[in-house]
């Protein structure tokens, strides 16, 4: 099952690279730098999916107390940091030629950076609590509180200052984008989501094996 998903993700990523770098037209204003959007936007959408999964798994863990959900949350939390970090990195690389700066304190940059720090803290909390059950509970509480803060941070920073272009894909009207670009973007979104699913499943499996090994070691002693 995971082999098929992994293969599918690899094929889709390759396809996404091809349509993004080859088939999609060059941007009239930004030139080739715009093509980084085909990585940037899928990365943040996947990051949001990961954060949402952390929230769902955290609530489920506190509800059911089953370690399964803790492992889902752990896997999703790591991938959230990974994909949000990728968003920040690609955004920076795009910002240098386009805005003329690696970093600016624009609303969305700032709130995304905060997300990155919050989920980095989430991983940190997981790593310092020794008792696994306690670590799971604490992480679940932070996973819930952190996700609750996401919209509040978004609005507060939005009011504080904004410079970023308004959302193009996730807005109510039809996307204002060349259809060929839109297709390239969607291929990459699907590719990133498939990659996320594959990595999450593998990470989950690894965490399960590790927990089982630990139980066996303790039982053996």
């Amino acid at each position: 099952m995971h082999r098929i998903l992994g293969g599918l993700a690899a094929v889709l990523l390759a396809l996404g690279l091809w349509v993004g770098l080859g088939l999609a037209p060059r941007d009239a204003v930004q030139g080739n730098a715009q093509r980084i959007m085909y990585v940037h936007v899928p990365a943040i959408l996947t990051g949001y999916v990961a954060i949402g999964l952390v929230l769902v798994a955290s609530v489920a863990y506190l509800w059911t107390r089953r370690a399964v959900w803790d492992r889902v949350a752990a896997a999703a939390g790591e991938l959230a940091v990974c994909f949000v970090g990728l968003t920040l990195a690609t955004g920076s690389i795009w910002g240098k030629p386009t805005w003329g700066t690696w970093w600016t304190w624009d609303a969305r940059l700032t709130s995304t950076a905060l997300l990155f720090v919050i989920y980095l803290g989430y991983l940190l909390l997981r790593s310092v609590v020794e008792d696994p059950e306690r670590a799971a509970t604490y992480a679940a509480v932070l996973g819930i509180v952190g996700a609750l803060d996401v919209p509040i941070i978004h609005f507060s920073v939005e009011w504080w200052r904004t410079l970023h272009q308004p959302a193009t894909v996730l807005k109510p009207q039809a996307p204002s984008m060349d259809p060929a670009m839109y297709r390239a973007l969607m291929v990459n979104v699907v590719a990133f989501l498939a990659t996320f699913a594959y990595l999450a499943i593998r990470r989950y499996r690894l965490l399960t094996l590790r927990a089982e090994a630990l139980t066996r070691t303790i039982a053996g002693v």
């Binding site: 940190l124 509040i152 920073v157 009011w159």
Partner: peptide, 23 residues
């Protein structure tokens, strides 16, 4: 009761408290 509590509390709390700070 964690070993790294002096560091961990601000590291976890401060990013989440940013909306409070801004407002």
């Amino acid at each position: 009761h964690l070993r790294a509590r002096e560091v961990l509390l601000p590291v976890l709390l401060l990013p989440l408290a940013v909306p409070v700070l801004l407002a």
